[in-house]
């Protein structure tokens, strides 16, 4: 008995949303009157174990096998399934990251257990775990429970507060060996290009987003560019020279509408919306975005929405707490300056 929280790592460091998963696990453990066990795999287990116990884990189960490369979904799944079989935890919780989704779905299949994914709220009623998750792009909420001894749960980013550190007792660490897991990786990594220094949209507390309106940059495109090419140039420069400075002052991530992505103004990984990322920052500033329903689907959970749009009738204003009707190429630089003065 226990509630497991899998602590995901990237290059040996814990992924920050894993600590939110640990918080969620601790909430369940408290209601179920059991302990919270952090599960850590791979190199650097000792440091992770210490951190996990500072952040609320009552114990740690570690497999410090150096051969457990972070990309080994097969090995991680086999190992997690062994631990589930041995300890029969009441729940296994992870962040709903790419790897968290894969790992928990795979291990849940191994033990024929229920998985409640993308949970934003958890509670226990009559001993059953009930997870609330958004469906239909957040237009509807659903409450789910599992029918199995172990309930697998992935939690959506920024839905559970990260735990506050406490002085840790010496963590009780159970070390396990990576026995009986596949030896040869079925997947060969041929190349990896890291993308560093970017604020991840899902974790961002503030997001500044640009839409099709970014193309109306008053700065003239270089001679020789016309039509579509000129629009792309203008929009790209707008993202780099007008939106990015605002994002930098705020420590924000940069988002975009699908129209901006499809037109080639900015790569797809910035897209917010039903076929992009779902985000729920404290502050979302939409610049030159009309607020189509598919865009709203990805950002309506933001705490405070600000709209900057030259069309007073744009639907985005209906969602916004604050709006400015005006040209973003005038408003955004003025806002950047005003914030710079205040934040200095």
């Amino acid at each position: 008995m226990s509630v497991f929280a899998w602590i995901e790592t990237a290059a040996g460091e814990a992924v920050s949303s894993s600590w939110e998963a640990l918080s969620a696990a601790a909430i369940l453990a408290k209601s179920l009157d059991t302990d919270t066990a952090a599960i850590v795999f791979g190199a650097n287990c000792d440091a992770l174990a210490r951190r996990a116990s500072q952040l609320g884990a009552t114990r740690v189960i570690a497999c410090p096998d150096e051969a457990l490369a972070e990309d080994r979904l097969d090995a991680y799944s086999a190992l997690l399934s062994q631990l589930v079989e041995k300890h029969e935890p009441e729940a296994v919780v992870s962040a709903a990251t790419n790897r968290g989704r894969e790992l928990l779905a795979s291990a849940a299949a191994d033990s024929e257990s229920g998985l409640i994914s993308e949970v934003i709220d958890l509670r226990v009623e009559h001993g059953s775990i009930i997870g609330t998750r958004p469906a239909y792009a957040g237009k509807v909420l659903m409450e789910m429970t599992s029918n199995s001894a172990t309930t697998f749960v992935t939690v959506r980013g920024r839905s559970f507060a990260a735990p506050t550190p406490r002085a840790a007792a010496k963590p009780e660490i159970e070390r396990v060996k990576a026995d009986g897991i596949p030896k040869d990786p079925p997947v060969k990594i041929d190349d990896f290009v890291a993308e560093l220094g970017q604020v991840n949209l899902a974790d961002a507390a503030i997001i500044v987003s640009g839409g099709r309106g970014m193309a109306n940059n008053p700065q003239a495109a270089p001679a020789g560019l016309s039509g579509n090419d000129a629009s792309i140039w203008k929009a790209k420069h707008g993202f780099a020279n007008t939106l990015r400075p605002l994002a930098e002052v705020l420590g924000a991530a940069i988002g975009a509408s699908r129209a901006a992505v499809d037109a080639g103004y900015i790569p797809y990984k910035h897209q917010v919306g039903q076929t992009g990322k779902t985000v729920n920052p404290d502050l979302y500033i939409a610049c030159g975005i009309s607020g189509a329903i598919q865009h709203q689907a990805g950002m309506r959970g933001s705490k405070i929405i600000v709209a900057i749009n030259k069309d007073a009738e744009a639907p985005i204003f209906k969602l916004a707490r604050y709006g400015i009707v005006g040209d973003l190429y005038e408003v955004v630089p003025a806002l950047t300056q005003a914030l710079e003065e205040k934040l200095r």
Partner: peptide, 9 residues
């Protein structure tokens, strides 16, 4: 079935 949808809101 691993899960049951209890209700929609």
């Amino acid at each position: 079935a691993g899960t049951t949808a209890l209700r929609f809101l």
